[in-house]
């Protein structure tokens, strides 16, 4: 099992040596059982670090902020930043390297193996516990979680509250790291695409009704996009940045301007936004599940990305984030790619 002391020790030593500018890790939320992202700059702050099943965040997201910050500074500190990553998160780093968005020397990767467990899913937890009473959740022995409530400690089998993506995970050990904490453990908890099975047996109309109901809820807060480590486009198709309207812009010109997605949260625009996002993440999404976790109206966004992941894997033998040297899914082809559907 990963020892928190090992994480702290590693962080202390790299800060002491001045190897990194700061470290992105997890710390406790003062008023809540969940963790929150921590930005550790000083050695004494490393005591705030935690490692428990509430460390859901994909901290690779914050590499983008660091990149932007550096671009704005005249004489930036060019040292790398340290980032604590789980198996899934480490694949996100690989994708960013593959796309040359970051350089390997920009980041010091502290890999943490999930071994036989993973992180929690709040929705599942809420069904079993009153959230208000939960004080803390810890890793227990034998694939269990220990939940501390006002009444005392309860042990619960990890699978009961484990995030769906963790149950389906194939990469419980980071695939890229400077230092690895925890052990490489082989595990197969479940089928990799199990959550998609329920869609296979339903009709076209049922599929449509499901997605129509879900995507109509969308309020376009763009939390899914904002939290995603891959959504780093300077100009997102959903924003109007590239559509500057000048005083001499005529009505005609405005009309001719292409706007793929309008800001209005109506059905057709919500579909456009989410479908385009899913397609842009095809072959890039590493299933950290953050988009689904942050959605305030509980849209099961992960299924869209998972579907793309499944097709990439089954039709093209491609898995995102395993090898930064390989070409990306859509900038590559094979002569014998399947084409049965083409007339």
């Amino acid at each position: 099992m990963v020892k928190l002391d090992d994480i702290k020790k590693e962080c202390k030593s790299i800060l002491e040596e001045g190897k990194v500018k700061y470290i992105v890790g997890y710390k406790r939320n003062n008023n809540y059982y969940m963790s929150i992202p921590a930005f550790i700059e000083k050695i004494e702050e490393t005591d705030q670090l935690i490692w428990d099943p509430t460390c859901v965040y994909n901290l690779v997201r914050f590499l983008r902020d660091e990149k932007l910050r550096k671009e704005r500074q005249k004489t930036p500190d060019t040292r790398p930043i340290g980032v604590i990553v789980k198996g899934c998160d480490s694949r996100a780093i690989n994708v960013l390297l593959q796309e040359k968005f970051i350089k390997r020397e920009n980041v010091y990767i502290i890999g943490v193996a999930c071994e036989k467990s993973g992180v929690i899913e709040k929705k599942k937890l809420r069904k079993k516990f009153n959230e208000k009473n939960i004080k803390q959740i810890e890793f227990g022995k034998d694939n269990n979680f220990i939940i501390t409530t006002e009444k005392g400690k309860t042990t619960i089998s990890a699978e009961e509250i484990l995030a769906e993506r963790c149950i389906e995970c194939n990469n419980n050990t980071p695939v890229i790291y400077d230092v690895l904490l925890g052990e490489k453990v082989e595990r197969s908890l479940s089928e990799h695409f199990r959550s998609l099975e329920k869609f296979e047996s339903i009709s076209t109309e049922e599929k449509w009704n499901f997605w129509k109901k879900e995507l109509d809820k969308c309020i376009r807060c763009y939390a899914c996009r904002s939290v995603c480590p891959m959504c780093y486009c300077d100009e997102c198709i959903a924003d109007s940045i590239s559509l500057a309207v000048k005083p001499d812009t005529t009505a005609e010109e405005k009309a001719q301007k292409i706007r793929w997605v309008e800001k209005s949260p109506v059905s057709s625009e919500n579909f456009s936004y989410h479908l385009i996002r899913a397609l842009h993440l095809a072959g890039r999404c590493i299933d950290c599940g953050e988009c689904e976790r942050v959605c305030p109206v509980d849209i099961p966004l992960r299924y869209l990305n998972k579907k793309m992941e499944k097709e990439a894997s089954e039709q093209f033998g491609y898995t995102a984030g395993l090898d930064p040297e390989k070409p990306a899914l859509v900038s590559d082809f094979k002569d014998d790619d399947p084409q049965d559907f083409i007339i």
């Binding site: 929150i36 992202p37 930005f39 997201r61 902020d65 376009r220 807060c221 763009y222 904002s226 942050v294």
Partner: peptide, 9 residues
Amino acid sequence: SLSCILCGI
């Protein structure tokens, strides 16, 4: 604002 992700929630 270090941990802010700039969403609209």
